[in-house]
Simulated assay, not measured.
Amino acid sequence: MFEWLKTLLFPTEDPSVIQSLVTIMLAIGTGVFFGRLKMGKITFGVSAVMFTGLILGHFGYRMNEEIFDFIRDFGLILFVYGIGLQVGPSFFSSFRNEGLKFNILAVSTVLFGGFITFLLFKFTGVSIENLVGIMSGAVTNTPGLGAAKNTIVELKNQFPDKTFDDPTIGYAITYPLGVFGIIGVIILSKVLLKIHPDVEMRKFRMNKINREEPLVHKKLRVTNPQYFGIPLGEVINSIGHEIVVSRLKHSGEVSVFSPKLDTELQDRDVLMIVGKEADLEDFIKKVGRPSTDSFIESDSDINKKNIFVTKPSAVHKTLSDLDLYNAYDVKVTRVFRAGKEMIPRPSLELFYGDILRVIGTDQGIKEAEK
């Protein structure tokens, strides 16, 4: 009765296209699931997909030969394309910071790995195909394996009588060591060098703050009579700091809203402000004092959400072009690009893959998201 289900889910020597697609989905699905599980403080992330693939291969799961090359190349294309979407928009701008140093380090690592592989080829007698697979697996470099496979296909066309080894075997053998070995070296280095992660993290954050201050949020109580009845935009301009006021609550009220630039400040108003810490401290000092009011953090009236920039109608537009506040009553409080937080200036141009953190009503956010 369930013979079709058994045929679909269990391994066979000559699988159909549908069976091959089920195998791929099984490897990806179980890999993503196990990649999210924690072993102590360690998670394997997407690398768990590789391990589930190895396990399925061990139990006899195969791919249809007619679609094997397509699936391999298509997966590689998606991988490279996904990386490009994530870091492409900020690739050239990163050279102004540490990008050049990191790229030199990466190129040096690749060249050194190639040099070690060449030495092993000269002195061990292992075929260059297997060594390329071993090198790719040792550094978990899947695109490198794909390039090696394509090169072998081209060589087979030129030398049809010559037999080539499959670099995938060496890749599969060394890939687990490329994952577990790195984890083991990090743990061993921590013990031998007596490294304390918490201390190092504090040093790293202080170093990052000295180079590029992160964005933070603080609460402010308006107490300076000089700014009573003054529009919010004029107050920000007069003090001269790049900050965003994401929320405002009048004294004695429980309703919270996102203020406009022409909203006039009142005595004992509570503001939620976003910007660099030094700027916020100076702004609070001039306008009032720090607040402990917890009602302004309530999400009963307004919500926040991260929106990915993916539509062509928004890419390469500035925030002032989109005018989300006037159109949907939604305010952008931060922009994330390749892990970097930025103040949402009106002139800021958006790129594909940017993330906008917005606040507003549920309906307004849904409309802006469309």
Rank of each mutant, 00 (worst) to 15 (best):
Y81E: 10
V126D: 03
D267V: 08
I116Q: 08
D299T: 09
R289V: 13
V254R: 12
I183M: 11
T318V: 04
T43C: 05
A314H: 08
F164R: 02
G233P: 00
V216D: 04
Y61E: 02
V309L: 06
F336V: 15
Q266M: 11
S255M: 09
V287S: 04
E242Y: 09
K149S: 06
M1F: 09
Y325N: 03
R36H: 14
V179C: 02
T7F: 11
I128P: 03
G146L: 04
G114E: 05
S258C: 05
L280H: 06
L54H: 03
S93N: 13
E212H: 12
T23A: 10
F121S: 11
D362R: 08
T124Y: 09
A368I: 00
D362L: 04
Y81H: 12
P231L: 04
I365Q: 05
M1V: 10
K317A: 03
I296R: 01
L85I: 15
A147F: 15
E98M: 09
Q19G: 07
A278G: 01
E264Y: 00
G170I: 04
A27M: 12
E367W: 01
P11Y: 03
H241W: 05
I24C: 13
L120F: 15
V216I: 10
R337D: 09
I343M: 11
D279T: 09
I42W: 08
P259A: 01
I104L: 15
I169V: 14
I42R: 14
F308K: 12
L319F: 04
G40A: 05
T223V: 11
S347N: 14
T151Q: 13
I83A: 15
V80K: 06
P160N: 05
I173D: 02
V185R: 06
T30V: 15
A147E: 04
N237H: 12
T23E: 00
R36N: 15
F351K: 08
S251K: 01
F159Y: 15
S300A: 11
S313G: 10
V153D: 14
K305V: 00
I173E: 02
H241M: 12
E234N: 12
F351P: 01
V139W: 10
P160W: 07
P346N: 05
K286A: 10
F121Q: 06
L111T: 06
N103E: 12
I55S: 09
F44N: 02
D161S: 14
P160I: 09
K285G: 07
V17N: 11
K331S: 04
D329G: 05
E264L: 10
Q266K: 14
K156G: 07
H217Y: 11
D299N: 11
D73Q: 09
V222I: 08
L131I: 13
L26V: 02
V191M: 11
L193Y: 05
H58I: 13
D354V: 04
F257Y: 08
N141T: 09
D323Q: 06
F336S: 14
Y328A: 01
V49D: 00
I182F: 09
G45A: 12
K311T: 08
G240S: 07
Q19C: 03
K340Q: 14
T52M: 15
G364H: 00
I169P: 00
P344T: 10
P344A: 04
L265V: 02
H250T: 05
K331R: 13
M201A: 03
S300N: 11
P231R: 08
L319T: 02
L145W: 02
I182V: 15
M272K: 06
F308G: 01
